[in-house]
Design a protein around this nucleic acid. Structure first.
Lengths: 258, 258
DNA sequence: GACTAATTACTGGTCTGACCATTGCACCAC
DNA sequence: GTGGTGCAATGGTCAGACCAGTAATTAGTC
């Protein structure tokens, strides 16, 4: 039961642990992309595991495409780290921030259609659920003094999800979902900013109210119109935010040129 | 260099090969989902490899989530085979064939918007490319006596891709692309049927011509309208095809009840 | 007889040390 | 310089041993 101290801090001698420790070393920059790792024999000594366990650990990293191995040569850290492998579209965001607005454009289209279909096809149960989600969100936004932005974002998301689900088109729900995930993972900080300011927040609240009313009333064209307006507003707000941060960056650059 | 004959047919004694052979056995139904595999020792004998290599092979299957392993118990074939893991949406198609029309609904929306934007934003270079793709497709459809359906489908796809790319919205292009891939992977056989019949083929040709003309002329609203009409036609044709095959199935059932 | 505890015969997990196969480099003859 | 040759390093595979969980059987108890 009692292990030598050094081994305890090193963790268990299991392949999973080996892979995790090596991944940590790579993420910390000890081993850099393109670089040749130490030989298996050396890594065994350094990580205090047998070669069999080490090799299974390397196998894990290889299957995650974190390293590449050539017999007689060694293992090299792959140049594309998994951070960039989250989604095919992720590349775009890293290369061209402008893609954000392309995404919003597509999302507006889908969000508008889902509101339209929800108003048209939504059952009474759908409407009850939509209203409940709306009330949860609106109550929290109005009554809470100190707002937890993350929670508000979740409630917001739940409301829109309920609307899209009332469209009774799972493909639409899924596509919208994946685009929203992509959006939030890339600009969650910016979205948080929107909630923090009372001006935008109130505008968003009003639009949500109108969207809810139109969908529940079954006014399909109106629902689509409101949804499009909603997304247009958000796009506008994000544009302003971007321009603002650009101004800040530029002034910071003047202060500290490189 | 000279291996015993038996080993040569078994293949190399490498973990990758072990994984491939086991996967083959699972796909062939020798080992069924939920079933417990033979113990590592037995598999070693049967596959004529050392336990170290076998374990690395099992590690590969585990990382692909084809098997699950518990110490002291054994390795079981996962109940969800990788065939169903191609895409989150794939589940839907397997469970509810009706999803096909949901997909076509979303695709019509995106295709319409992409035609609209292409007509609006397309550069002269875009138009040249769209025309070229259109001509390649139309020439092949008209002049070829015996039509290679797969080739025609590729040309068709290339034409629509050129249109969507002229929208200058990479997110739209990507989303449309993934939906199209999903569609073709699930109902490629049905799509082939459409091309085989001269009636539907000529209708599709006419719609392509009108779509091309509207986009190149920059008539955005008209382009959207034609694209929507195009997708509506295809949906209708697929519906008819489905009803037809259902009739066939039902009559077959009467012949051979079970 | 019914329940609990110990036994035991499995299972996967790890370790060791050896040998094989490929690579790349230093060396050497031409 | 050029082209072979050998050697030392690498990853790949192997065999056998022991550790560590699991589960069914058995022995013991009430």
């Amino acid at each position: 039961m009692a292990l030598p101290n050094e081994e305890r801090v090193m963790g268990q001698r299991t392949p999973e642990n080996v892979a995790a420790r090596l991944e940590r070393l790579i993420l910390d920059g000890v081993f850099r992309p393109g670089q040749l790792l130490p030989s298996e024999r050396r890594l065994c000594e350094r990580l205090k595991v047998s070669r069999a366990s080490l090799r299974e650990g390397l196998r894990i990293l290889r299957s995650k495409q974190i390293i590449e191995t050539r017999q007689g040569h060694g293992s090299t850290v792959a140049s594309l780290l998994p951070m960039h492998q989250q989604s095919p579209l992720m590349h775009l965001f890293n290369d061209h921030p402008r893609t954000l607005f392309d995404l919003l454009e597509v999302r507006a289209l889908l969000e508008g259609e889902s509101a339209f279909l929800a108003a048209k096809r939504g059952t009474s149960m759908d409407r009850v659920l939509i209203t409940r989600r709306y009330r949860e969100m609106a109550d929290y936004a109005e009554h809470s003094e100190s707002i937890d932005v993350e929670r508000l974002a979740r409630l917001d998301h739940a409301f829109h999800l309920a609307v899209s689900q009332a469209s009774h088109n799972p493909v639409l729900v899924h596509t919208l979902q994946s685009l929203t995930d992509l959006l939030l993972s890339s600009v969650f900080a910016s979205v948080k900013h929107l909630y923090h300011r009372s001006g935008p927040r109130e505008m968003i609240n009003r639009q949500h109210a109108r969207l809810h009313d139109a969908v529940v009333a079954g006014e399909a064209e109106q629902a689509r119109h409101v949804a499009l307006e909603h997304l247009t507003s958000i796009t506008e707000l994000l544009r302003e935010l971007e321009a603002e941060s650009e101004r800040l960056e530029r002034s910071a650059m003047r202060m500290e040129p490189w």
